[in-house]
């Protein structure tokens, strides 16, 4: 009886801790979102942090990322087009490849790429800032860390993910046209009709909101995980690990929710 009670208490304590952590994460995300739309946040210092974040998250990786996105898109589109032709379903090839590549694969690929590169870096940096007491040092000289360090990273991260997704999707649409019709402009009308069929208002809105949510998740979750690190150096890798796992599940949740919204 005693052991069972102890077990239940431990389970309850764990569940409560889990819920509290998610509660703190949502509160932090909501605060970051409110600050994003607060004009007072945007001064010379915060603008420079936003620009630096966009530079490191999007600009620095742009050529390599676009090359990789183009290669992957072209391969997937070719597979879909060839398979559709083999089954006598050529008229659906373009629609299917746009749905697979533009609506699903590229936004997910973009956010995973940014999460692995910038999300992990942000998580580590914030955890070390927290552990080294740099956050309190900033507060002591009258610099609000939320406004100077965290909100600009959220804004920069969201803009970067959205921009990378948009660019890779445009590139994929061009490649899809070339793969299906070849390098000529006679079928632009047919192509436009298929695109209009795929990008219904719901699909377009879902893609936009999904990209923005991915952008928020990829910065808010690592920052919050870094802030939760107890102030001892050996907790830094644990904070990064927790942040990255939480980020993976949130990305997958957003992806599945968007799929459900479009196809169910």
């Amino acid at each position: 009886m005693h052991t069972a009670l102890e077990f239940l208490t431990r389970i309850g304590g764990g569940a409560l801790g889990w819920l509290k952590a998610w509660g703190r994460l949502l509160t932090f995300g909501a605060r970051a979102l409110v600050e994003t739309f607060t004009p007072a946040v945007y001064n010379s210092a915060t603008r420079s942090v936003v620009l630096k974040q966009i530079y490191f998250t999007a600009w620095q990786i742009l050529p390599g990322f676009l090359l990789f996105a183009a290669l992957l898109s072209y391969v997937v589109i070719q597979i879909v087009v060839t398979t559709a032709r083999d089954f006598g379903l050529s008229e659906f090839a373009l629609e299917v490849s746009v749905r697979v590549v533009v609506l699903e694969t590229l936004p997910l690929l973009t956010v995973l790429f940014v999460a692995l590169r910038s999300g992990a870096a942000i998580n580590t940096e914030v955890a070390l800032m927290n552990i080294n007491n740099e956050i309190r040092a900033l507060e002591d000289v009258g610099v609000d860390p939320m406004r100077f360090e965290f909100t600009p990273r959220v804004i920069g991260g969201a803009i970067s993910v959205f921009a990378l997704t948009l660019l890779s999707c445009i590139l994929a649409l061009i490649l899809a046209y070339i793969a299906v019709y070849g390098v000529q402009s006679w079928n632009v009308g047919d192509f436009s009709r298929v695109i209009a069929k795929v990008f219904t208002p719901v699909a377009f809105l879902t893609l936009s909101v999904k990209s923005l949510l991915f952008g928020l998740a990829v910065t808010v979750i690592p920052i919050r995980a870094g802030l939760e690190a107890p102030r001892m150096l050996f907790f830094a890798p644990i904070a990064v690990l927790r942040g990255m796992v939480r980020l993976f599940f949130v990305i997958m949740f957003i992806e599945v929710a968007s799929l459900a919204l479009i196809y169910m």
């Binding site: 001064n43 010379s44 210092a45 915060t46 800032m129 740099e134 309190r136 040092a137 900033l138 610099v143």
Partner: peptide, 24 residues
Amino acid sequence: ELPLRANLSVLENIAIVPQYRQNL
């Protein structure tokens, strides 16, 4: 107990105060 920001130079660590507080 109040360290400098590790990823900023000395100049940036000092300049950040008027830049942020006075929007310079």
